[in-house]
Simulated assay, not measured.
Amino acid sequence: MDRSSSNPFSLEETPTSGSEAPLHFLEKALGGLRCFQAFVTAYEGGILEACREPASLADICGKTGAHVGIAGPLCEGLVRTGFLSRDGSGNYQVTVVTRDFFLTDSRFSQKAAIAQMKEFASLFYCLPDILQKGPVVYPRGEQFRERVIPAMAEQSRCGLVQRVAGIVSSLPEFQSARRLLDLGGGHGLYAIALTRKNPDLSAVVFDLPEVTPATREMIRQYGAQERITTQEGDFFHDSLGTGYDILFSSSNPSGKMPALIPKISDALNPGGLYLNKQVIDSPEEDPFADLEWNLWALEGMKKTEKRFRFEGSVRLEEYNRMLGESGFMVRNIVPVDGRSVMTIAQKTGVRGAGRDAS
């Protein structure tokens, strides 16, 4: 007999766990989903564009075709989250943050970054299928060219490139440097910013053949063709060249792979600097972020189960120790932002040079 219909639970009985809100976790997650989907809909559906100048709800619906009963709460949510403001007459207008990042002509547009976030979100909707069939596999060059690098370029222009260029240009060796290699440099913005800090510095951006056409276009847009060139290659398999005073690497797999240290050393002149910006290995790991990392894969590149780690990579602390055993002196580890640090290492040619205790 069905107990749920003929013998209901005693109203004096409570859950063994003691929890009175078993769906709290899902309610909190759903709140994030609401905000994400509401913002993306407003961004793509023209709501933000309709509010460049003060606009009534009727104006917004007239411009976008939105249903007034849906658009009203949506706009109020955008006010609450800081993307719109509302004046005393009830008119909505975009905020400074929205003008900076989320209009079609915003100087710091985040269009590619939002598209990448949408794609990651869509993978979770496919989780039941991926759970059975395995990760979605992307062509490596296409994924970097079309998604990863444009998104990284947009995000880095918002202050990260400027901060990194300030750190690097303050190093005593920087003004005397003549050749820089931006390893896996993708968008080329770091090379562009650094050559502007040193008029005698030339740079080479090394990246995959599928990526470098976009790199050259970025270099052209900034008018830096005379001092910055590209080199096509795969740093897992190809030579990096030689004769560089600085080798810069930002958030790419080479910066945590001990097997590539000899190539990096060979590319540098004696006394040359290896500047390696990497995401911090956080002890507070998020298993759902690791899950996202494992929902997709790149052709020809094996990832580990932990986020931002590829096969052959090690934790940054271990990598820096191995630098010291391979002819580098780790001079400093500089915080860049809340998520990353830059290791400043100098090629000494003396194995076991270790780390500068000063």
Rank of each mutant, 00 (worst) to 15 (best):
N198I: 12
G184F: 07
A193T: 03
D207M: 02
E210S: 15
G166T: 04
V204D: 10
F206W: 06
T195E: 11
L201E: 03
F206I: 05
S170D: 15
P213A: 11
L183T: 07
T195I: 14
I167N: 00
K197Q: 15
G184V: 10
A214N: 11
D200F: 13
D207L: 02
D207V: 04
L171F: 08
P209N: 10
A177R: 01
L194Q: 07
R179S: 15
P209T: 04
L171T: 10
P199W: 01
L183R: 06
D207Q: 04
L208S: 10
S170K: 14
L183G: 07
A191E: 01
T195W: 06
D207W: 02
I167L: 15
G185V: 05
P213Y: 05
T212R: 01
K197F: 00
Y190W: 06
S176V: 13
V168W: 02
G188W: 05
P209W: 06
D182H: 05
T195P: 10
E210L: 10
P209H: 11
R196A: 04
P213F: 01
S170Y: 07
E173D: 14
D207F: 08
G188M: 11
V205K: 00
A177D: 08
G188F: 06
G188Q: 08
G184E: 04
L189S: 01
L171V: 02
G186P: 01
L189H: 01
S202T: 15
A214Q: 14
A177H: 08
A203N: 05
L171Q: 15
T195D: 04
D200N: 13
A177E: 09
T195K: 03
L189C: 06
S169A: 14
G184H: 08
E173H: 12
A203Q: 03
V205A: 00
A191N: 04
R178A: 11
D200A: 13
T195M: 11
F174K: 08
S202F: 02
Q175T: 09
G166H: 07
L201F: 13
E173S: 15
H187Q: 00
G188K: 03
P213E: 09
A193W: 01
A165Y: 04
P209K: 11
A203P: 05
A214P: 00
A203G: 07
V211E: 03
P213C: 10
A177F: 08
E210W: 04
F206Y: 15
I192W: 01
A191R: 05
V205C: 01
F206C: 08
G184A: 13
K197H: 12
A193Q: 04
G185D: 07
A214S: 15
H187N: 14
G166K: 03
